[in-house]
Design a protein around this nucleic acid. Structure first.
Lengths: 206, 206
DNA sequence: GTCTATACATAGATAGAC
DNA sequence: GTCTATCTATGTATAGAC
């Protein structure tokens, strides 16, 4: 049971699964496998084995394999939207808000929910059209958070590049960190990486 | 038959396939399908149908489906390494070289070879370990080009961020443009996008 | 070099017992 | 809620005729 009050509230409202529940554990293992092998290469037998049941038993919890992918994505966006909003709300200036967003997204990508975030980015094509639309609606809320902060920075003259394009560059750059950033190998911390990102945007020295 | 002398030379040396040949056309269609549906969701029947033959006939040209994926990747890296090197060699200053590299990579990603470049980035996991090693060797040459230029910029004090990290950020940001940049819809040109990237790095106004 | 036919494996999903 | 057993479809790859 997670200590983070934001996460606890989401579980209580049944917007995300309790990681200790059967459903929660399956989604966690699914995210790990989807990220490692890809959605298509992961079989329902792989998924079942990862939580110690037989493949037939999976379909008691989910109607289809795609349903599992969709659940991973939906719950991940819900969780991270709430975490990002909370992180930004605690900051006074737009620059501090941006730093908090970058830090939080890097944490999502490279921390506990990293596998799920990578799935969100790289397994998009495997979702049916209907499911894509549904997930996209949630993602729009998430993106609005970013744009609001970047537009404030642009209005203050601190950001000279276009806010929309900047966000897209950031999306690519931050999600890509999952392929190379290894905090456990020493060297760069998450705070250090956050600083590098802001320095790249010309927003740290000023 | 391509007019570009660099491409012509590569074809003459048999380092990349002639786009007009049976092999070249297949690799082009394969890149398109792998990018659109993903490698795993693309069947050998899809590949065969795209060039107007039966699936059994494919195996006269390639030993396996994975062999096709590997060929797409190998030829794409060879082609783009040559194009990037030529683009950088024509420039005098490190800043001009970087602009040329960014421009060339954006062109690769969003132009004719865009599908193949996306495959290179997003279908990495589908390659066997042995094939990954082989492709990785080629990619190291390509990346050395970038690092050399970024290190020159850092030595001159024009780049304040770390060259390695900057390249990784650029890799993510530039490859991600394939998901949103649509030059045909008007608005931003490739040169305009290149400028935005350099502005983001704080390297345009100075 | 392409065809047809098919071998062989493995995928997602279902049914009914416990 | 999980098991075993199995249906059915579809995947990659091969064989031999033309």
């Amino acid at each position: 049971m997670p200590q983070n009050p934001i996460v606890k509230a989401l579980i209580a409202e049944q917007l995300v699964s309790d990681p200790a529940s059967a459903r929660g554990r399956l989604l966690h293992e699914a995210a790990r496998l989807f990220r490692e092998k890809g959605y298509e290469r992961t079989t329902v037998r792989d998924l079942a084995a990862a939580v110690g049941i037989q493949s037939g038993s999976l379909f008691h919890h989910f109607r289809s394999k795609e349903d599992i992918l969709k659940a991973v994505m939906v719950e991940t966006i819900r969780l991270n939207t709430a975490l990002m909003r909370a992180a930004a709300e605690q900051c006074a200036t737009p620059l501090d808000k941006l730093r908090a967003l970058v830090r939080a997204e890097l944490e999502s990508i490279n921390g506990q929910t990293g596998e799920a975030m990578a799935v969100l980015v790289y397994e998009w094509r495997s979702l049916s059209q209907a499911a894509q639309t549904e997930v996209l609606e949630l993602r729009d809320i998430y993106e609005a958070l970013w744009l609001s902060v970047l537009q404030q920075l642009a209005a203050q003259g601190q950001l000279t590049a276009d806010p929309f394009i900047t966000r897209r560059m950031l999306t690519g750059a931050l999600s890509w960190t999952v392929t190379w950033y290894r905090p456990e190998r020493g060297g760069l911390t998450l705070d250090g990486l956050t600083d590098e990102v802001l320095r790249m945007l010309g927003l740290n020295a000023e």
